[in-house]
């Protein structure tokens, strides 16, 4: 349905995204996940042709967004971040404008507007000015716009952002009801939202695609990247000396002393499984490992860890 091929975008000298490659098949519902500033919006803007990439291309149903932008955009319904709308048009006028701009004509326009207004439950505000609509309505107006020409692909940037719990529920239900007929790419930083709607996750971090797979496999991969607890059969001092020599350990803390040996909790430097390296180091130094295990970490915690890293980087 859509393929991103090595999409790269830099803003002046600052990072946008680099070398993002993935493909989404027909009927899939894929979630972009990543902390603030990860590059989700940038990627979506490249997919929709709002921005042109410095390198790479996006291809929608074999149509390149760079070579035939008009044809490619016809296939995409896009809800931008923050859902910008014309405040001084009525909901009906707005949808009429969008329908015409997207190439609908004549009687079709009225029919489609009625259709999407019904679907998105905004039929009751059609005569109202957009400026006076509540946030929940505005969000559904944005989705109605994305749906107006019945495009096969929907790209929704944080569709539930800033809504109250009832509206979030409502919007999610609406999105779920679209799965049957549309391929959907959405972005979010809420994990539970991903789990509620998506079948596949794309994890973006620092402008790069870090993970691409089902939610279960993401959970499995992230689970191996957490902190490790080890109990070594030696005194605390020797243990500390040994652990400080392992390159992939970011930092470690002494845990309350167990009945035998000394216990530590280790944080890996980069995301990755460090247990193997610990084992070989201890083997070299002839220090027996009494216990070693991953600290149980939820998806949420793993995600938080990523987020914290990014925040630290941005502050420096």
């Amino acid at each position: 349905m859509i393929q991103a091929r090595g999409l790269t975008k830099t803003y002046g000298s600052s990072r946008g995204v680099s070398d993002v490659t993935f493909s989404v098949g027909k009927g899939e519902i894929v979630g972009f996940l990543g902390p603030n500033g990860a590059g989700k919006t940038t990627t979506m803007r490249l997919l929709t042709g709002y921005l042109y990439p410095n390198d790479g291309d996006a291809v929608i149903e074999d149509i390149s967004i760079l070579e035939r932008p008009k044809d490619a955009r016809k296939l995409i319904g896009y809800l931008p971040e923050n859902n910008p709308l014309y405040e001084d048009l009525t909901v009906g006028e707005y949808l009429d404008f969008r329908a015409r701009v997207k190439g609908l004509r004549g009687r079709e326009i009225k029919k489609r507007i009625e259709d999407v207004a019904e679907r998105c439950s905004i039929a009751d505000v059609r005569k109202k000015l957009i400026g006076s609509c509540s946030k929940g309505y505005r969000q559904r107006i944005g989705i109605a716009d994305a749906l107006i020409n019945d495009p096969p692909l929907l790209i929704l940037d944080e569709p539930t952002q800033g809504l109250d719990p009832a509206q979030i529920h409502h919007t999610r239900e609406l999105i779920k009801s679209l799965i049957a007929e549309h391929t959907i790419i959405l972005s979010t930083h809420i994990l539970s939202e991903m789990e509620a709607i998506c079948t596949r996750a794309l994890l973006i971090h620092k402008g790069r695609l870090q993970f691409d797979g089902t939610l279960d496999s993401m959970r499995a991969e992230l689970a191996c990247q957490g902190r490790v607890k080890v109990t070594l059969l030696c005194d605390a001092e020797k243990g500390a000396g040994l652990l400080s020599k392992i390159a992939s350990v970011e930092k470690f803390e002494a845990e309350p002393a167990p009945p035998r040996g000394a216990a530590f909790s280790l944080t890996p430097k980069d995301s990755g499984d460090i247990r193997e390296e610990i084992f070989w180091k201890c083997f070299d130094e002839r220090v027996p490992i009494l216990e070693m295990g991953l600290e149980k970490q939820s998806l949420e915690e793993a995600f938080l860890m990523l987020t914290r890293e990014q925040a630290l980087e941005e502050n420096s």
């Binding site: 044809d71 931008p80 910008p84 709308l85 969008r98 701009v101």
Partner: peptide
Amino acid sequence: KQGTIETLLTAPLS
């Protein structure tokens, strides 16, 4: 300013 340029520029228009 309103950000609506984004919906305009992603519509199938040259």
